[in-house]
């Protein structure tokens, strides 16, 4: 085996570390993307029996965005096993308790339930803010593209930009400016 081929072999079977910024991302949409990298589905050498999944580091999981009124409509069920031990926690209550839990459960549910799932989940690292431990961050070599555009708030746009922006509506002539 030549030296180039040997390096290609290492590169093929090495675990790549990806980073994913969850800011303003829907966890259930982005779970389908993260899942592919975790399981190694994006690789041509993928096979369920070969261990080719990558590591995904999710940052800013506190800043995830849910659609419409899902923060108060979506409930997470848990049962302790005892009679009357069922609890339903709303999404905003769960996010208050643990800001990493919603994205973790979303990725867990996106994957098929088999014996590999718990081992694959070990490769998902979630951080609520932007601070990531240095030993994790130095492995990262790739960034996963976000599924949704992060919206810009009007107060973050400078005054001169919003004034010079093309206008659609003009005031009628007898309108009193306020």
């Amino acid at each position: 085996m030549s030296a180039a081929k040997r390096v290609q072999q290492w590169a093929t079977f090495a675990r790549t570390w990806h980073i994913f910024d969850c800011k303003w991302q829907d966890p259930y949409e982005s779970a389908n993307v993260i899942k592919k990298y975790l399981m190694g589905l994006h690789k041509p050498i993928y096979h369920p029996m070969n261990d080719c999944g990558d590591v995904v580091v999710c940052i800013n999981s506190r800043e995830i965005a849910l659609r419409g009124d899902e923060w108060r409509k979506r409930a997470y069920f848990h049962h302790t096993g005892y009679p009357g031990g069922a609890t339903w926690t709303l999404a905003w209550e769960l996010h208050n308790k643990d800001p990493t839990m919603i994205i973790k459960k979303a990725v867990y549910r996106a994957m098929k339930g088999n014996l590999q799932r718990r081992h694959t989940m070990e490769r998902l690292l979630i951080y609520p803010g932007e601070t990531v431990p240095e030993d994790v961050l130095q492995n990262v070599t790739n960034q996963i593209r976000q599924t949704r555009l992060v919206p810009t708030r009007l107060d973050q746009i400078p005054e001169e930009v919003s004034k010079a922006y093309p206008k659609v509506m003009d005031y009628p002539e007898d309108y009193i400016l306020k």
């Binding site: 829907d26 995830i64 659609r67 923060w71 905003w92 949704r148």
Partner: peptide, 28 residues
């Protein structure tokens, strides 16, 4: 997204809102 266009007594920053309103929401 338009928190500078609000009445004076409004909770301007979404982070200062209560319960489910303080988290990011997007719409379809």
């Amino acid at each position: 997204l338009m928190i500078n266009l609000t009445p004076g007594n409004c909770k301007k920053d979404p982070k200062k809102r209560r319960e489910h309103k303080k988290f990011n929401t997007y719409f379809d």
